[in-house]
Structure formats: C-alpha cells, structure tokens
Design a protein around this nucleic acid. Sequence first.
DNA 1: CTGCATCCCATTTGATACTG
DNA 2: CAGTATCAAATGGGATGCAG
Lengths: 106, 106
Amino acid sequence: MKKENGKYLLCPMAKLQKIIAGKWKVYILWILAHQTIRYGELHRELAGITQSMLTKQLRELENDGFIIRHIYNEVPPRVEYALSDLGRTFVPILKDLNQWGQTHLK
Amino acid sequence: MKKENGKYLLCPMAKLQKIIAGKWKVYILWILAHQTIRYGELHRELAGITQSMLTKQLRELENDGFIIRHIYNEVPPRVEYALSDLGRTFVPILKDLNQWGQTHLK
DNA sequence: CTGCATCCCATTTGATACTG
DNA sequence: CAGTATCAAATGGGATGCAG
C-alpha cells in the first residue's frame, strides 16, 4: 500500500463507504443488479423498510449516480428504477460481497 | 440471483453490512491488512477518531472475529492488533473496494 | 501507553397519516 | 401507485476526564 505524508491513502474508501453505509443501500443495489424494478415491487422486496426511507435512499443513490429513475406518464403512475452505467460497474463487487458472506458468515 | 419465498436472498449481505457500516471499520481493516500495528500508532493513522471510538470499533471487530488482539505484559503496556484468518479472507474485497473507488470516484 | 466511563449531540431510521 | 410531511425513537459518534 502506498503512503502519503505518512498517512495511509484512505480517501478512495471514504466516498465509497458512505454509499454502502446506509442500512438499505446495498440491498437496493443488489436487487437492481438483477432487474429493473418498480417502486412498489421494490418496497415489497425490502421487507421492513418504510416508504419514506425507501424514497430517501433511492434519491441518494440517484444523486450519487448509481441508479436511474424512469418516470412513465401513465395512469396509474409508474416509476422504474435501474442501475446506471456507474452502478453496473459496482455489480462485481456486490457479487463478491455476497459470495464472501455466504462463505464466511454461516 | 436465487429467490426464496419470493424474496431475494439478502441475508448473506446483512451481517456483512453491519461490519462495514461503521464509520471507521473499513479503514481499520484496510490498515491492518498491511501490517500488525499498535493501538497508539493506529490512533495516529486514523486522524480524527477519538480514543473511545477506536477502542469500541476494535472491540466490535474483535467480537466479529475479524481481528486479533495481542496483549504484551510489559511496562508501559503494549497491545498489538492484527487480522485474524477470517479477516485475511476479507482483504481481497477491501482491495477491490479501494480499486473501485480510485477508478470511479475521482 | 492503553482504554474505560460518562455525558451529550447529530444523524439516521421508523411510525403514522395524508396526497396527486 | 408513488410518493410527501411530520413527529418520535434509536443509533452513532464525539468531548472530556480518569485509571491501571
């Protein structure tokens, strides 16, 4: 590992950590990694999350550039969420995390 | 991805997420990934963390089986921290996270 | 040097009700 | 259906002082 000014280069981890720090972020990304999904279905998959929290997490992921929100002008309203290009680059890591968890956290 | 009872298998991620959720956990692991280190030096590397917080995080990582605490009966007291076998299995993921951050979070 | 105890604040998360 | 608003609760994190 490289050092700089005698300190470890922790910076690259900093932003990344904030992304996966939330209680639901990785779950949301993990679901979106496999499919585009509507708000309502996402809410059902994430048993336990409240609507307000889900909305908040989705907004943050959107602002961080990880996901894309597609609004259809229909009645009833329909909104779909999908990974962005950036989000897709993160999928291999999600798979590794999942694999590690299955292997080591029995 | 496999489903079970109509829900995604999020469980493997659950415990893992709690480990990396803390504000300092990944940093501590990242430093320990490269060397065994004393409490004091770790405290200096992690600029900004308070002693009580560092102690707390180290205890949690120890309880989770990620790190090992080695106490030397000396005066002045000396305590060294190192990754456990389990902790070392997590190093590749830490490297991937770091690499991803450097690539995508400029 | 290592690290515990106490108090305190900020942020995060949750419960509930309501709306276009 | 897909949210927003409001309030309450839990948690995380920090400041400070003390101790073996």
